[in-house]
């Protein structure tokens, strides 16, 4: 059976009457979960994700003894979609978390050197957990925005007798860059942004690209069953550059708190 979403795209239209390069309504609520050191609720249309940051004490990795650690994890909880199942993260959730992890890490958003306490022995571990509340497509862009805003709102707990003391906080995380991730989808010969779930099912290939404020690309991942040509990639990067500025505006909320 041919998909209605696909038929529309071939006619240059979309199921919810958006333009190809138009995002759904975006809503960002920073500091959404009071128990987390930093958090954000982000919604792209009906796609909803909560990101929470928790700080813990960790042992630095052996190849970077003078740095704290960062880890982005994700759970595709069964409440968010009939296709998600309970249990440990599977392939899709793992890939999703690692795409967002690389966007944050490679942008050099967080100065991990400042999170080292005793080289080789102790440092701060920044844990970003992404909880999908409703999956209506384009999890990567939504989750990446949630992760960055959550990090921008995050506070450093105090350290008392080598233990974490959450009764008071010591200011924001050492944050400099604000990476934005934009995913461009190829359907036939068309390129579109922010697919909903019906559109996502007919996507041939998509490329997620994370960009820093200075315009440098810091992470990319091709997804989906199809391939891309060199010309496709050229087109996609131009779209990403144009659109990333628009998405970055939604991060302004965190800025006032972080610095």
């Amino acid at each position: 059976m041919r998909s209605y979403a696909l038929e529309l795209i071939e006619k240059g239209k979309r199921i919810d009457e958006r333009k190809f390069d138009e995002y759904r309504k975006i809503e960002v609520i920073p500091d959404y979960v009071k128990n987390a050191e930093g958090s954000a609720f982000v919604r792209f249309g009906n796609t909803k994700i909560i990101a929470g940051v928790k700080m813990e004490l960790s042992v630095p990795f052996s190849d970077t003894p003078d740095e704290g650690t960062l880890m982005v994890s994700a759970e595709f909880t069964p409440l968010a979609s009939p296709d998600f199942e309970a249990g440990p993260p599977r392939e899709d959730a793992t890939e999703f978390a690692r795409i967002i992890d690389r966007g944050v890490r490679e942008s050099e958003m967080i100065d991990l050197k400042k999170l080292c306490i005793t080289p080789g022995e102790k440092g701060w571990g920044v844990c970003v957990d992404l909880h999908i509340i409703n999956n209506d497509g384009n999890l990567v862009d939504c989750g990446a925005l949630a992760a960055v805003v959550a990090l921008l709102t995050a506070k450093m707990p105090k350290l008392k007798d080598d233990k974490i003391d959450r009764s008071g906080f010591e200011g924001p995380l050492p944050v400099s860059q604000k990476p934005v991730t934009v995913t461009v989808c190829k359907v036939g010969q068309n390129f579109l942004l922010d697919p909903n779930i019906q559109e996502e099912e007919v996507v041939d290939a998509r490329l997620s690209v994370a960009v820093r404020e200075d315009g440098r690309i810091c992470a990319m991942q091709k997804q989906g069953p199809g391939g891309l040509t060199m010309k496709d990639i050229d087109t996609i990067i131009d779209m990403v550059m144009k659109k990333s500025e628009e998405l970055r505006k939604f991060m302004a909320v965190g800025k006032t708190k972080a610095k």
Partner: peptide, 8 residues
């Protein structure tokens, strides 16, 4: 296509 690092 997977990339990480910083490139124009």
């Amino acid at each position: 296509l997977q990339m990480d690092g910083r490139l124009t």
